[in-house]
Design a protein around this nucleic acid. Sequence first.
DNA 1: GCCGTTCCTTGATTGAAATCAAGATTTACA
DNA 2: TGTAAATCTTGATTTCAATCAAGGAACGGC
Lengths: 183, 183
Amino acid sequence: MLASLLKQVPLFSDDDVEAFLPLWKKRFTVNRGDFLIREGQTEQHLYFVESGALRLYLPSAHEEICVGFAYPNTLITAFPSLVTQTPSQYCIQALRRSELVAITKPDFDQIQEKRPVFGKFWRMELEKALVGKIEREVDLQLPDPAQRLERLLRRSPHIFQLVPKKYIASYLRMTPETLSRIM
Amino acid sequence: MLASLLKQVPLFSDDDVEAFLPLWKKRFTVNRGDFLIREGQTEQHLYFVESGALRLYLPSAHEEICVGFAYPNTLITAFPSLVTQTPSQYCIQALRRSELVAITKPDFDQIQEKRPVFGKFWRMELEKALVGKIEREVDLQLPDPAQRLERLLRRSPHIFQLVPKKYIASYLRMTPETLSRIM
DNA sequence: GCCGTTCCTTGATTGAAATCAAGATTTACA
DNA sequence: TGTAAATCTTGATTTCAATCAAGGAACGGC
């Protein structure tokens, strides 16, 4: 699963992949509704989703703000907490029974020091993530709900099969009622 | 200016700084209203602002969407275009007479290959930028304009001195009239 | 497969920000 | 410094998504 994906990264030699895979030591199985991390905890892992679906959100006072989803073959973590090693503001909750493997921050940092190719790989992943967030910033600025929906449908049509619409509505900055009316 | 900032980065030795500085070869002076890059051009540079103020925005059909500002001692570039080397969707326009220095993408890539410390430095900058964008994503989701304003005032009070309010309004996803009423 | 819970849809009403408009103030620059 | 352009403020009106409400569908767990 993770192995076959890594083997497709041109950057990596077979040896690189073999050094990397054993670091994904921990296995997590979470049921629908369970939390991978809750607000206040400090993130220790980078997760790779093998099956299931999860949401990443900010559990603020009145309203939850959904900032992302994860599904098979994607990475997920409470990124600001992982990077700064301070308590997370965000939660990660399973939307259905999900299986994940994880690497710890120290292990991940270490292999980047030891093998420069992993530093480069992570840099490229960060660049992709940042480009994605810049596009997302534009999406969120669009005043018309239908336009916001259209851009998500174009970019990530699959999440509509994986995630309850009410969370997608939150992600799109609208109520479930509004989403229902424009879909 | 740039030199004194780099000398404060603990990661860098004096030798690193001396290898880096000469790569910032190009000097740009732009007047109010001038463009550093326009839609359709492919970004070649990473810029460092020495003086002035600029805005980064998407010039879409009816409405311009402002996605960022730059002011002295900050970096700016049309990031997605720089990374992917495809034509930019975004423009960078000077809001007043501004002076910048720039490094080209090839020079920047090369020093990261040659000196691993620059790879690490850039990785850390990307992580900071990504954390910032995640916070910004939450800001933009807040339904109440006053809350969005409050978070910007807390995070970047200085931009209110540097940037015309109408652009700040756009950045905050509200009209200038609404911003005026709640300030 | 059944039952209970969660989720989705549709309708009626409300409310808050956008729009439209005009005047006041500030800024750029010749 | 003077003048035109740009920006900001304030008021009146409109519009569209949020809210409130309830019935129906889908899903998960036993």
